[in-house]
Computed example of a mutant assay.
Amino acid sequence: MTRLQPARQHTAPHSRPTGAARFPLGGRAQALCRALGGGAAMALALGVGTGAGPTLARALGLAPSGFAARLVPAALVSAVALALVLGAVRRSGHRPALLGFGGPVASLRALLIGVAVTGAAASGVFGLATAAGLLRWSAPDPGALAAFLVTNAVVALLLEALPEETTLRGYTWTSLRGAFGGAGAALGTTAVFLLVPGASTVVGAVTARLVGAEGGQVGLAPEGEHPVDYLVLLTVFGLTLVAARTAVREAPLWAAIGTHLTFLTVNRVVLEGDRRHAGWHTVHQDAVVPLLVPLYLLVAMAAFAVIGRVSRRLRCG
């Protein structure tokens, strides 16, 4: 899980590969059940992947700390999550476009918007913090940094960004949008997002024991994170992801995926670069530095809101 880390359906719901479609009306209770189903799919996928993935990697003879070994649980998480959600969408008679997927060009454009907006917000906030003396940096190692960016992007995409956005800002948000409106869907999706980490630790512990491994810690937050701080950050992050997902008309889910990937990458370099051997890291952090993370998320959220508003006005015009 992340660490410190649909509007109206028209008569031809498959003709518009945007976030504007919704599931057929079935009442708020059914919408809530589908929304929780999206969260359950992610919790199950994450628990199975993290619980069984390391054992599977060892069975394949992969070095525990190597890239391939990290890739196994990540791929398992995406495989389970996407199979569950896309299967549910197809059973309802819809296509993946319902969730916010789109064609290659639209998807790449939306992904780059998510990366650019979040990266610019983080660069601005951390740049000001560096100028103010709150952060000092090591000398960068370009080769190590490039290798980290590539391997981290692949693992983070499969372990977190793609499955979480598909299940939550895809399936859960789309389920809630038609029954509860935009604000209700944003808050409801974020609430489900907060339930996933704790539920996934339970699934992960059970799965690990079933495959003969030692069960991990069960709790509301990943090991080493303060639960309250983690959930507050997750709330801000979740709302930012919804803002990204609703800012773009075509393939909007990829804007959220780009935002998610950028968030993970930035934080892992700035806050954990030394431990992760990222090739660049901070050598001094002021006590207020962790507060800069929700700050740059708020900046990104505001930027996505402006982009979405401008986009809607241009369409209306």
Rank of each mutant, 00 (worst) to 15 (best):
T130Y: 02
V211A: 05
L36Q: 02
L71T: 05
V293S: 10
A116D: 07
T259P: 00
A79M: 11
V206P: 03
F67D: 00
A179D: 08
I113F: 02
F23Q: 08
R34K: 14
G188K: 05
R249D: 02
P54G: 00
R58E: 06
A81R: 08
W254S: 14
L56D: 03
G47A: 04
T55C: 05
V196A: 08
L176W: 12
N152S: 13
H284Q: 14
G279R: 15
T11V: 06
A132N: 00
E165W: 11
L210A: 13
L292D: 02
G53Y: 13
T174E: 07
Y171C: 08
G51M: 06
V206N: 06
V196S: 09
P64T: 01
P96V: 04
G258A: 07
A69W: 08
R109G: 00
V117Y: 08
L98A: 04
L195A: 15
T118H: 05
T240M: 14
V80Q: 11
A247H: 04
L168D: 05
A139I: 10
L71C: 01
Y296F: 15
A31N: 05
L298S: 10
L194S: 00
A106L: 07
S200K: 01
L295E: 02
D274V: 03
G39A: 04
A255D: 11
L292S: 07
G198K: 12
L176I: 13
S123Y: 13
G258Q: 01
L76N: 05
L99V: 13
F67S: 03
V232P: 01
H277T: 04
G49A: 12
P290D: 07
G258L: 01
L297F: 06
T166H: 00
V270S: 06
T118M: 14
L176E: 08
G224L: 00
Q9T: 15
H284V: 03
A213S: 15
G114Q: 08
H260S: 02
F101W: 13
G66Y: 06
C33N: 03
C316E: 14
P6A: 11
L32Y: 09
F304A: 04
A31T: 01
V293N: 04
P6C: 03
G37V: 11
R90C: 00
Q217T: 14
V48S: 04
L220V: 12
Q5T: 15
V105H: 07
L86M: 10
A139L: 13
G127D: 07
R136K: 11
A20C: 06
A213H: 03
A40M: 09
I257G: 00
L44W: 03
A97I: 02
Q285S: 14
A83S: 15
A305L: 15
G26R: 14
G100L: 10
T207Q: 09
V293M: 08
A147D: 12
P163R: 12
L295Q: 07
V203T: 02
V77D: 00
A97M: 02
L176A: 12
G204C: 03
G182E: 11
H277Y: 03
V211C: 09
A278S: 14
A153N: 06
P140R: 08
L239N: 09
L168A: 04
V306F: 06
L25H: 12
A88D: 15
G279C: 04
A139G: 11
L194C: 12
S92M: 13
A129R: 12
S138N: 05
Q5L: 12
T118S: 08
A35S: 12
L210I: 08
C316A: 13
T151S: 14
E250T: 13
A221P: 08
